[in-house]
Amino acid sequence: MKAKLFWIFVLLLVFPFTVDAQCAMCRAVVESEADGSTAEGINNGIVYLMAIPYVLVAGLFYFIYRRMRG
């Protein structure tokens, strides 16, 4: 069973699906811009929103690590 799940996971990583997950208004604004500054801003916002949970979890694990060692 674990081998089957592993191969499904590998196939999903090797053959990613293209997903258009933008709302209609965001997509229209990004496509209408000629210089791409809006697209860059939206991409930076996505990275910022994605990074915050990782930073919080890393801080939590660091706190737990310090409590367990000390």
Rank of each mutant, 00 (worst) to 15 (best):
T18L: 13
N44A: 11
L11N: 02
K4N: 08
F17G: 01
M50H: 06
F15C: 02
I52Y: 07
G45L: 14
A51V: 01
N43D: 10
Y62C: 14
D20L: 08
Y48Q: 10
Y62G: 15
Y48S: 10
A24D: 06
V57T: 08
F61Q: 05
L11T: 00
T18Q: 05
G70K: 09
G36W: 01
C23E: 08
R27K: 07
G70R: 09
L13M: 09
I52F: 11
I42W: 00
A24T: 15
S37Y: 12
D35I: 13
V10T: 04
V10S: 04
V29Q: 07
M1T: 12
I46T: 09
I42E: 14
L11P: 02
A39Q: 08
G45C: 15
L56Y: 03
A51Y: 03
M25E: 14
W7E: 03
C23P: 05
A51S: 13
A34V: 01
A39L: 01
F6S: 09
Y62T: 13
T38N: 10
G70S: 12
V19N: 00
V14T: 07
I42C: 13
K2P: 10
E33G: 12
I42P: 14
V30S: 05
A58R: 09
F6P: 02
R69D: 09
R69C: 02
F15P: 00
G70V: 03
I8T: 04
W7S: 00
M68V: 07
K4E: 13
I8P: 00
L12F: 04
V55N: 00
R66E: 11
I42K: 13
A21M: 01
L11D: 02
G70A: 14
I8D: 00
V14H: 04
F15G: 02
M68E: 11
I42D: 15
W7G: 00
M25W: 15
D35W: 00
V30N: 07
D35K: 03
R67L: 12
E33A: 12
E33P: 06
P16W: 00
K2T: 03
G36L: 05
R67K: 15
M1P: 08
R67G: 02
L60K: 11
L11I: 02
Y65W: 13
R69N: 12
V19H: 01
M50P: 06
F63M: 08
A51L: 15
D35G: 15
M50C: 11
G41I: 00
M1W: 09
F61A: 06
R67Y: 10
V19S: 00
T38I: 07
C26R: 09
S37P: 04
R27M: 10
E40G: 14
L49N: 14
W7R: 11
P53I: 01
D20N: 12
G41T: 15
D35H: 03
L60D: 11
V55I: 15
F63V: 12
G59F: 04
R27V: 12
E31T: 01
F63R: 14
E40C: 06
F63H: 07
V57Q: 08
G70D: 13
V55Q: 04
D20V: 04
T18S: 07
G41S: 06
I52S: 11
I46P: 07
T18C: 04
R69V: 01
L5G: 12
E40Y: 02
V57H: 14
F63Q: 11
P16L: 03
F61Y: 07
Q22A: 10
V47N: 04
S37W: 07
M50L: 05
